[in-house]
């Protein structure tokens, strides 16, 4: 774009920015808007009443009103020309009794069936629940008993072992004492035997000496 065109654009924008409406027109426009704002609700009400007026004036509404009138007249004629109406109370009582007679056993049977079903289902549920609880309780008890038994048997075994060890120790002590006593006796007998031998030897020497003499 040339410099000249740019100047033209700037000039036009400047002209636009300098346009001022007359004060009379401004005041008129503002006053009109003010009236519109103030009368907004009134105009809305007016508009709604105008709509109703238009609706009432339209031929469709007239036709509809005529149809409603005809229907009303027909209905009234029908009511007036109809036979004597039944006694409503009597009819109501008869209906009530017949309905009661026909419906009561069926309702009772139905109620019993429903109650039975409910009980059965509730019983089945509680039965299964009880079974499960019992099963779990037995399992818990067994586990506990096994643990206790194991602990008790361990303790008993230890006690028996200790007793056995003590018995073995006592037997060994007795054996050792007996062996010691036997050894002592042997030693004494050995000494006696040596003394005997020495006496025999002395007597033998004496005998041999006497013989040589």
């Amino acid at each position: 774009m040339s410099k000249n065109d740019e100047n033209k654009v700037n000039h036009r924008l400047k002209v636009l920015s300098q346009i001022e409406p007359s004060s009379k027109a401004t005041n008129h426009a503002i006053q009109r808007v003010r009236d519109t704002i103030v009368n907004k609700e009134k105009s809305q009400q007016h508009a709604s009443s105008r709509i109703w007026r238009n609706i009432l004036k339209s031929p469709i509404t007239k036709c509809a009103a005529a149809a409603v009138l005809l229907i009303a007249v027909g209905y009234a004629t029908g009511r007036l020309s109809a036979p004597e109406p039944l006694d409503v109370e009597e009819l109501k009582a008869a209906l009530e009794s017949s309905l009661k007679a026909s419906l009561e056993p069926a309702i009772r049977q139905d109620l019993i069936t429903q109650l039975n079903e409910q009980w059965q289902s509730a019983f089945a549920v509680s039965n299964a629940q009880l079974k499960e609880e019992l099963h779990q309780q037995v399992r818990r008890d067994l586990t506990e008993f096994a643990a206790q038994t194991l602990a008790a048997s361990g303790t008993l075994t230890n006690q028996r072992l200790m007793e056995l060890i003590q018995l073995i120790e006592a037997a060994r002590r007795r054996e050792r004492q007996q062996v010691a006593a036997a050894l002592q006796q042997i030693e004494q007998e050995k000494i006696q035997f040596r003394n005997g031998l020495l006496a025999v030897a002395a007597q033998t020497n004496e005998l041999l000496g006497s013989k040589q003499d």
């Binding site: 401004t26 426009a29 503002i30 808007v33 003010r34 103030v38």
Partner: peptide, 30 residues
């Protein structure tokens, strides 16, 4: 109404500048 008192004249001037017509500016203001 307060907005109209404060800025009504400015809005009308703006509309006049953008439409170049006072009558249209009045309609648009409405």
């Amino acid at each position: 109404l307060e907005l109209l008192d404060r800025s009504g004249a400015n809005l009308y001037t703006l509309l006049t500048r953008l439409t170049l017509r006072e009558d249209i500016a009045e309609e648009l203001m409405q």
